[in-house]
Design a protein around this nucleic acid. Structure first.
Lengths: 156, 156
DNA sequence: TTTAAACTGTTCAAAAATGAACGATTATGA
DNA sequence: TCATAATCGTTCATTTTTGAACAGTTTAAA
């Protein structure tokens, strides 16, 4: 709990997040564009891939992405053959999105590109000590926990 | 320097940044919308305000914002009376952007809104220890330093 | 000097993202 | 049961963002 330091100081951390954010978005946009993807398409793929499959509903909730944007991003990824789509059994309203083999290969390729956001970030991580890395993960988890409760949380 | 842990582990930190990012963008969009601003307008204001003045060129470089987007965001902030605009003396190509008194008041108001991104983030910071806060700042600085050197850095 | 190249910001047509209305399905409860 | 409300995803008109061409200014080199 911050004591002497006040809100004005919190701004410093906020700007520091913004600074990292700027750079990661720039690299992500470059990576996406270099691979013929828009940002929503790229984000959706990055979000689904580690889980192999995910409901479109859950995906939207996790990403805070407007459902019209999400719907179109998914549509194009399906057309590109990176994900398949099938109704959730027991609830025909929802769709389950499944990473295809092509999608998995494409994802792995994205991660391995030297000028991609993943490798660039990985190189940046090398500048951190193991301890710093762990502390960063922990602190982020604490912050994320509180942040996700803030705001209206209106359905996107 | 990470030893045993490998690239796959770096991905965990990358996803952790994405998680914070998502929430901050969501809160920033809400804050912007609640105050009649688009995201570029909001970002530009947040970027100029602490410095009171800045050239449009520097602003673009710092934000990685396409210059057409920047130009329009600035135009609307000028029309709204939050910033003034004058040619840089000694170089009539560049423009200097100066925060007006109205702009400063508006900025301070944005920071003080209970449901605004600043206060929300500030509340989240309270969940961190002072030590965690300092470590976070330090680690971010290290990462930002490396990140900003990565990628094409083509002029936006 | 004069000319060509580089730089800074604006404009505008094209592309991308979004809100609102909608269709289809499921849940609620009278 | 049946009617109403809520949920999930799509469509499409509108808004927002962006790249590319451009105009004005400055720099560099001939």
């Amino acid at each position: 709990m911050m004591k002497g330091t006040e809100a004005s100081c919190d701004m410093r951390l906020l700007y520091s997040f913004f600074n990292i954010h700027k750079n990661l978005v720039r690299l992500a946009k470059e990576t996406a564009a270099n691979n013929g993807l828009t940002m929503p398409q790229f984000s959706v793929l990055m979000m689904i891939a580690p889980h192999k499959k995910m409901t479109q509903k859950i995906l939207g909730e996790r990403m805070f992405m407007p459902k019209s944007t999400l719907s179109q991003a998914v549509e194009s990824l399906v057309k590109a053959g990176f994900i398949r789509r099938r109704p959730v059994e027991g609830n025909r309203r929802e769709l389950e999105l499944i990473l295809s083999d092509e999608g998995e290969a494409f994802f792995n390729d994205l991660l391995s590109q030297e000028d991609g956001v993943a490798k660039c970030f990985s190189r940046a991580c090398h500048a951190l000590s193991e301890q710093q890395y762990r502390q960063l993960l922990e602190a982020h988890e604490v912050l994320a926990e509180v942040l996700k409760k803030q705001g209206e949380i209106k359905s996107c």
